[in-house]
Amino acid sequence: MMDTIKRISGVNPRKCMKCGKCTASCPAFDEMEFHPHQFVDMVENGRIDQLMQSRGIDFCLSCFACVERCPRNVEPAKLIEAVRLAVVRQQGGDHLRPEAIPHLLDENLPQQAITAAFRKYRK
């Protein structure tokens, strides 16, 4: 699993120098039980199962602040995305179903939000 995560993300977690700048930049760090810098460390140490079970990964906003500000060009967001994909690609791993969409809608919600949610939360 660790190799899959590394391969599809293209990230080498060993480049990380553990400065914590990604976490300091992250607008969602409070919502994630594992903060971006811990996340990188956990992938490096093969603790993928724990990451896959963490609900906090859905709060990553793909805002790329961590990617922009990492001095070592580690790209933590890509690791989070890879773990999220590992979850939704499992049988029954989706956690957004088309039936759930109507009650999420309101008059002004842009299509973009729904398309994005489908891309993020289901396969």
Binding site: I8, S62, Q111, T115
Partner: peptide, 15 residues
């Protein structure tokens, strides 16, 4: 539709 989110994973081709 472009899909609204950039597919970060390298093995996402269809998107």
């Amino acid at each position: 539709c472009c899909g609204a989110v950039y597919p970060m994973a390298k093995d996402e081709i269809a998107t």
